[in-house]
Write a protein that binds this DNA or RNA. Structure first.
Lengths: 127, 127
DNA sequence: GGTTGACCTGGAGTGCACTCCAGCTCCTAC
DNA sequence: GTAGGAGCTGGAGTGCACTCCAGGTCAACC
């Protein structure tokens, strides 16, 4: 299967502009072109785009994604380094989740506080 | 207790520049000044700064923090709306955590994949 | 009374990740 | 054969959240 840029955008969740931008900065390889010179994405291209969106969602900066992309380009010999990048990134994602969870507790506390305030207010009215 | 801007920065985890920036954009009330015209933060000021850092950590955009700050300024009557903001924000933080966890699974999968590759590689050598 | 260091102000600059635009080409359908 | 729509390029513009800077003030210590 091949996909037009619009289809690739829809399936990856990236915008058309972002797809071209990623290509420009070397985050994705230039895809094939059809007879009219238009981009024609393969299933492999799509898979890589989807994986990139995962990295992006987890907050990996573009320059690190680019490093990863370049390593990937150099083949199996770089698998160790790539694994290390993912390993470290996994750790940072776990930290981020922990951080969010700790902030969530503060939020819970605050919301409870407002509920108590409301309660007091109601009591004030009914008293 | 009162705190110089440097102390407030250290205790809140924000930079001195960020403290002044937050004041400029109306995210924090202008603190008291000492005899020399320097900012003098109270414990209450500090508490608000710390809370702001929690909201920031959880990804609340500044314009929303500002809305919250303005409501707070208007007193108890706005408690309902403030609670609602926190409520909605809590939901978005929960969603964000879920999203990260789902991406984490993809990462785990990929890392396992690299481990298998390595394994294959080692087998290839020893075979 | 001179130097040092923290702090002040208004405004300019930065880095990131897009996002938009003008002016063009190409294919399709009428 | 022409009108419309998708896609093309290089480059400019955007929004966010800071961050830095020049040039000045102020209090304290030597």
């Amino acid at each position: 299967m091949t996909y037009s840029i619009a289809q690739a955008a829809e399936r990856s969740g990236l915008s058309i502009d972002t797809l071209r931008y990623y290509e420009r900065i070397g985050l994705v390889d230039p895809p094939a072109r059809d007879s009219g010179g238009r981009r024609s994405y393969s299933d492999d291209d799509l898979g890589w785009l989807v994986f990139l969106t995962r990295l992006r969602t987890t907050g990996m900066p573009i320059r690190m994604m680019r490093e990863y992309a370049q390593l990937r380009h150099r083949g199996d010999a770089t698998a160790g380094r790539r694994k290390q990048i993912l390993f470290e990134h996994r750790a940072s994602v776990r930290e981020r989740i922990a951080e969010l969870q700790s902030c969530l507790e503060v939020l819970e506390y605050k919301i409870t506080h407002y509920e108590q305030l409301e309660h007091t207010f109601v009591e004030g009215i009914t008293a």
